[in-house]
Design a protein around this nucleic acid. Structure first.
Lengths: 137, 137
DNA sequence: TTATATTTGCAACACAATTGCATTTAATTG
DNA sequence: CAATTAAATGCAATTGTGTTGCAAATATAA
């Protein structure tokens, strides 16, 4: 399962399973805590840090208050993260989605600015909530 | 100066002047604190919150660790912020710039996703640092 | 099965941010 | 211009978040 040079423990397995169940949904630390019956805050901090530096999870900047994490692509590794997709925060249900299929369009930076990294955070209403809204009308 | 229904105080004036000196540069709270000779952290918290909700400053998401603030456009008000420009974080000097002139190109969201807000955080090397780098070569 | 190195969990700590409240200050009114 | 009122300030105390140190537990390798 985790041959990213990480040891297999039951705690890590529990956390990782939560992400594998919904591969494109980002979770905050409080999201994870509320789903774990017994958890240790400190261990969770270190688990997340290990996962990120190992290339298993990436930080999902969604413009919201909470920092969230989401599963990396297969080709991510400790030295090179490859998660340059937008993140979408639903203002209704609070879920954050990885929009892997949405390509970030290119744009023109001012002169002498050198681009190294892009993060696109989109918010609005997700497909699920949108369906519910239109049904209720 | 601040007819956004905010009272004029010397503290607020000091803070606001820092932003007016460099209108397109975003400042974090620690940036501000280090430039004020006498400051009260709590008052600064409340000042920033007042400025944001009054439409004077907006939060500049730059993908960095620190939350930064920058001057709003003229047409921002408490009910409607209008600051949909990218923010650029220089990885060398740590400065954050509002790229007012960079237009965010449109893109295609998945079906039934409704877009309400975009935040584009770009990082790299800014023009100043770029010039210094090339000079030193 | 043993040895070794990593991970875990607890306690203590450091720091950031918030709340309550008395005091001060800015705008308003007569 | 003085008195009034409402908002802003500053301090104390509190809450919350994230970190560090260390002993015990656990996973891998020999």
């Amino acid at each position: 399962m985790q041959r990213h040079h990480l040891r297999h423990t039951s705690f890590r397995e529990q956390v990782l399973l939560m992400f594998l169940e919904n591969p494109k949904i980002a979770l905050s630390q409080s999201n994870i805590e509320s789903s774990l019956e017994a958890f240790d805050r400190i261990t969770l901090y270190r688990t997340m840090k290990s996962f990120v530096s190992a290339g298993v999870l990436h930080k999902a900047i969604d413009g919201g208050e909470e920092l969230k994490y989401a599963l990396c692509h297969e080709d991510c590794n400790p030295s090179q993260h490859n998660d340059d997709h937008p993140h979408f925060l639903c203002q209704k249900c609070g879920s954050t989605y990885c929009l892997d299929d949405v390509h970030i369009p290119s744009f023109q930076l001012p002169d002498n600015y050198k681009l190294l990294d892009i993060q696109l955070a989109i918010s609005g209403i997700c497909d699920r909530c949108n369906v519910h809204l239109t049904c209720n009308l």
